[in-house]
């Protein structure tokens, strides 16, 4: 059983709000999805070696190259000022 408090906590970690009228639907969906994944949690995986799933990525030299211009970086924001993104001041 997943509680409303748990859904609110997951939503907070996910940076989402769950409106009151969506709460029950999200709660039951989450319950069904976790039930679906239960066979994963129940599996005995102690003897499976996962070390070889990690493969190394090729490294490149750390060189200064071209990047986005300020204008390009700001091209898709709704709110900018003097070449900066506008955010809400905390507090």
């Amino acid at each position: 059983m997943i509680t409303r408090e748990e859904i609110n906590n997951i939503a907070l970690l996910s940076k989402l709000f769950v409106a009151e009228n969506e709460m029950e639907s999200f709660r039951t969906d989450m319950e069904q999805m976790m039930q679906f994944a239960q066979c994963v949690a129940d599996a005995d995986t102690a003897n499976i070696n996962t070390d070889d799933t990690a493969s190394s990525s090729p490294m490149r030299q750390d060189k200064i190259g071209t990047s986005l211009t300020v204008q390009e970086a700001l091209a898709n924001t709704d709110a900018s000022c003097d070449g900066y993104f506008v955010v809400k001041k905390n507090g």
């Binding site: 997951i10 939503a11 970690l13 996910s14 989450m30 994963v40 949690a41 599996a43 499976i48 799933t53």
Partner: peptide, 24 residues
Amino acid sequence: MMGTNVLSSDKCSFYYDKARALRQ
């Protein structure tokens, strides 16, 4: 939300870590 839940500290070893092993 499902992803956040299975990665949360109390569930990660039961779900995400085991899923990786089963993938292998």
